[in-house]
């Protein structure tokens, strides 16, 4: 068979709706037989956080960031109609009703399908996120790695 097609997606946002869209496209592309890279940078990194606090040494600013950003896929808010957290609960309810997978299951499915999850190390430093705080089994890299994948891919998205 010819070389595999590639798809890359940058998840920049920490919005539940946008993360769901990114993971649905990633899973779809994997089902198309593509080699898929999901690159997490800035606020998007929060999607990869473990939902339990992890004790790591941090400076004051980094601690503030950690407290103010959503801790993990279950804590993300909506980009529209968030209504102080009621919006996400409504969306989760509606998704269940329509038999759509929730974000944690979409992440699980993506890993099962071999989607490569990559955390941007530069923005991890800026936001004070440590490897120990992110879920296991992901890759760590920078812009050159992303561009290496993107240059070979036909589908490249920024979400």
């Amino acid at each position: 068979m010819s070389q595999k097609e590639k798809t890359t997606i940058i998840l920049f946002s920490a919005d539940l709706d946008k993360a769901i869209a990114a993971f649905i496209i990633a899973n779809g592309a994997a089902a198309y037989g593509h080699e898929v890279t999901l690159f997490f940078t800035f606020w998007g990194l929060n999607t990869l956080r473990k939902d339990q606090p992890v004790s790591v040494r941090k400076g004051f600013l980094e601690n503030m960031f950690s407290k103010m950003m959503p801790r993990g896929a279950n804590k993300l808010g909506l980009s529209k109609m968030n209504f102080a957290g009621i919006g996400p609960r409504l969306i989760k309810h509606v998704m269940k009703k329509h038999n759509a997978l929730g974000l944690p299951q979409l992440i699980e499915l993506a890993r099962e399908q071999g989607v490569k999850l990559v955390a941007c190390t530069m923005t991890m430093d800026l936001l004070g996120l440590k490897k120990e705080e992110l879920i296991d089994g992901i890759d760590y890299a920078g812009v050159a790695t992303y561009l290496g994948d993107a240059a070979e891919a036909k589908v490249n998205l920024f979400i």
Partner: peptide, 14 residues
């Protein structure tokens, strides 16, 4: 049946 996007093609692929 009853599964939402993207599950049908994920199942088909598997």
């Amino acid at each position: 049946k009853g599964l939402a996007c993207p599950m049908p093609i994920v199942r088909a692929k598997k």
